[in-house]
């Protein structure tokens, strides 16, 4: 009897593997394969069509020691991530808390604020290029009404990255939706208990709301951090394929794309992608290590 059961378990396992086989094969062929290939090719002078000679760590050496734009592009990307991730997270939380209040026209507001997340891509970038136009753009015009002489936005190297961050803030609706869902899940009883204990609104927010939604904050921070490092389209479209004034919008992935598809130095671009991978990997690891200190899961016993 015991033997039979084991046998059955093994069979069940086998069937399980067969069911996920398409996914495993897809992963091996379309993800793991190219990943390993790019790791291998990053040690060569691969140019896609005519050469692939092993050159040791020369790509990495050149990248870290000699490349004149590597650090510029990395700085630009870090700058963008450092500001856009906290700002969009706080913005999304703020918005979702506001839209969680019981006021008339709530559905209308939710739709309005979510709308930018539905619109995306090149159209939005072109729209923002017009909004940010220093002479005729709506933003400087509105700043002018309150007596502020607006900056040159996309033409001033000091303001190009803030322009992009501003644009990103406009579309926090996607994150907002996640927070809104988790806010709805916070038990009303907790607030009632807190109220009886005499907690103020701020205290309720600080000690009940925030801890209860930390799993979603954590998820949002991790994914938008990774997404932030991959910024590419915005810069590509809004600079018409250049790097922006004084290369201030030359982001890491954009520079990598140039090396791969303009100069055809694919080996070098692959080395670049692995350096980025390491950076993101380390940051995500730190994130995961720090998580238990501030992320609270419902029903989890505190050690």
């Amino acid at each position: 009897m015991k033997k039979r059961k084991l046998h059955f378990k093994r069979q069940e396992g086998l069937v399980g593997y067969i069911f996920i086989l398409p996914w495993i094969i897809g992963f091996l062929i379309f993800t793991a394969g190219p990943l390993l290939f790019s790791l291998g090719a990053s040690f060569t002078n691969y140019n896609i069509t005519s050469q692939m000679d092993f050159i040791g760590i020369r790509n990495y050496e050149k990248l870290l020691m000699d490349d004149q734009l590597f650090w510029t592009s990395l700085y630009n990307t870090l700058y963008y991530v450092a500001f856009s991730v906290p700002l969009t997270t706080i913005g999304a939380i703020f918005l979702s808390v506001l839209l969680n209040q019981d006021v008339p026209g709530l559905r209308f507001f939710r739709t309005i604020y979510y709308l930018p997340a539905v619109l995306s891509g090149v159209g939005v970038y072109l729209l923002w290029m017009q909004l940010l136009d220093p002479g005729t753009g709506l933003i400087n015009m509105m700043l002018g009404w309150v007596g502020i002489d607006g900056p040159n936005w996309l033409f001033d190297p000091e303001w190009t990255k803030p322009s992009l961050i501003l644009m990103k803030l406009w579309s926090v609706g996607g994150g907002m939706l996640l927070y809104l869902a988790s806010l709805q899940g916070v038990p009303k009883s907790l607030y009632e208990a807190a109220e009886i204990d005499g907690a103020s609104t701020w205290q309720q927010f600080r000690y009940i709301t925030i801890p209860m939604i930390t799993p979603v904050i954590f998820f949002d921070v991790v994914t938008s951090l990774i997404g932030g490092f991959q910024i590419f389209q915005e810069a590509y479209v809004m600079t018409n394929g250049g790097g922006g004034p004084v290369n201030s919008l030359l982001f890491y992935n954009y520079y990598m794309w140039n090396k791969a598809f303009k100069v055809f130095d694919m080996g070098y671009a692959m080395a670049m992608s692995w350096v980025l991978f390491l950076i993101v990997f380390v940051l995500t690891m730190i994130n995961l290590k720090l998580a238990p200190r501030w992320v609270h899961y419902e029903g989890e016993a505190k050690k």
Binding site: G242, V246, V263
Partner: peptide
């Protein structure tokens, strides 16, 4: 090939 990215800034 990518010299403009060095001169333009």
């Amino acid at each position: 090939p990518d010299f403009p990215t060095l001169i333009n800034p």
